[in-house]
Write a protein that binds this DNA or RNA. Structure first.
Ligand SMILES: NC(=O)c1ccc[n+]([C@@H]2O[C@H](COP(=O)([O-])OP(=O)(O)OC[C@H]3O[C@@H](n4cnc5c(N)ncnc54)[C@H](O)[C@@H]3O)[C@@H](O)[C@H]2O)c1
Ligand SMILES: NC(=O)c1ccc[n+]([C@@H]2O[C@H](COP(=O)([O-])OP(=O)(O)OC[C@H]3O[C@@H](n4cnc5c(N)ncnc54)[C@H](O)[C@@H]3O)[C@@H](O)[C@H]2O)c1
Lengths: 209, 209
DNA sequence: ATCTTATTGTGATTAGAGGCACATGCGTGC
DNA sequence: GCACGCATGTGCCTCTAATCACAATAAGAT
């Protein structure tokens, strides 16, 4: 059971489940069935059971899942039981919004370094007190602060170059907000967040009905 | 050929293709093969041909695709040959970044209305000159300005309520940035942009190798 | 006019994800 | 202590998406 290949979609859903579970905890719910949880997440109940089955047995037959326990287990599966150190590159409109966003911190994602090429910004501090460094210090600082994930918020033209530098600095996971496809070596994971693609999907939907 | 059901993934890729094609145009490339385009987009060449095949024939055998022509056609398929009118609800950190983002405008997405519940913000103008209105005017203003898409940038607790109001105001497409699942009636499309889920994916990748 | 070469368009094939349905097994009540 | 109800865990089936492989065909050379 342990060594099956796990669908990427499963991981994405697990992330969704943690959300729902957190809301349930807030509502003082202690036990939840796959049926109920499925409703909250907008998926099929069997899907949930199958997703969990990849990683073991977490429920009690005839009862359901203990919310708190399941949340703990799922978080552990995803690797959310610990803190992650992030670096942001490009602190423009979007970059600043991200760093300021306190949800990330609450979830264990901590920005420990910031970089920007703008001479006007270098040396200044973000609202969180984080110092903005020049890109050429990326290697040294990322290693020193043990940055594990890089977030790219620069214009698209620079994204690949930044990615290369991050990889060079030992960063193995990159979240890319620039609307471009980034190449990364084996062993480095790149996730793209692409608002335009989503808008395009909506446009298509409205166009075709 | 015309009345097959088209995979959602196909639409998403079409959006990616337009990006690559735009870069090719900038580089003065006039003709491109599915092989080359596939490399740029990180997909399988046959995938591209099949995606396009859903909508007709766009290439020349033995030659490839004429870049400019194909871009025009794909944009038309997606409904990007025209302008779309958007409303934003919640002009905080993220909301402001979105409105300020000029890429959207370039692609034909135009913010024509903004709403926020904060009394300090109502009545003020965004950097683009867009006036911030109270949420209770959503219905009237959205109808008046013929808003077609709504963008939700409020805290998660209010997202569903905002969505309901947007739907009520005749909006048929919603882009939701709040980390929550939104229910919408048949005929209304909701797309979620969820940064945390992406980060969680990275965390999982780093945790398991 | 015919042959060559390159690349499309597409039927066939493979891979994979999602959903169904039931056997399994836990908790409760009698 | 036994039976019953209920929700899980999972084998199997279905459906969809991705890839392969080749026939169709356009452009250019001979
Ligand atoms: N703002 C949005 O809502 C939005 C939406 C979708 C996508 N994006 C994408 O996110 C990225 C950033 O968007 P933004 O709105 O924050 O842009 P922005 O112009 O406000 O910020 C870009 C920042 O990157 C910095 N930068 C430029 N080159 C750099 C380099 N080589 N190294 C380090 N820093 C560099 C700039 O100095 C600037 O501070 C862009 O690729 C954009 O397309 C933004
Ligand atoms: N900032 C980020 O990087 C980021 C990242 C991921 C997700 N998000 C999500 O995006 C949403 C907005 O994030 P933000 O950082 O801009 O938050 P923010 O607090 O800066 O802005 C929220 C805005 O929404 C307004 N608002 C609150 N209730 C409202 C209502 N009922 N009607 C209209 N407006 C209302 C507030 O007045 C405020 O201006 C949140 O759901 C957040 O979780 C943000």
């Amino acid at each position: 059971m342990k060594f099956l290949k796990i669908p990427a979609a499963t991981i994405t859903r697990l992330s969704l489940y943690t959300r729902a579970l957190e809301t349930l905890i807030k509502e003082q719910v202690t036990v939840v069935s796959s049926k109920k949880l499925a409703e909250l997440c907008g998926v099929n109940p069997a899907q949930i059971r199958k997703d969990l089955a990849y990683f073991g047995q977490f429920g009690v037959r005839g009862v359901g899942y203990y919310v708190k326990e399941l949340l703990f287990d799922v978080k552990k599966i995803l690797g959310l039981h610990r803190e992650w150190k992030l670096a942001i590159v490009g602190v423009g409109n979007l970059g600043c919004a991200l760093v300021a966003h306190e949800n990330f911190t609450r979830q264990g994602y901590r920005f420990v370094a910031a970089f920007d090429a703008d001479p006007m910004k270098i040396g200044r501090k973000l609202v969180t007190g984080l110092l903005i460094n020049p890109p050429n210090e990326m290697h040294a600082i990322c290693r020193e602060k043990q940055v594990e994930m890089g977030v790219i918020c620069t214009p698209a033209d620079f994204a690949q170059d930044i990615a290369n530098r991050l990889v060079d600095a030992g960063v193995k996971a990159i979240l890319n907000f620039a609307p471009t496809q980034i190449q990364a070596p084996e062993g480095v994971k790149v996730e793209n967040v692409d608002f335009s693609v989503k808008l395009d999907n909506l446009a298509y939907f409205l166009t075709t009905g």
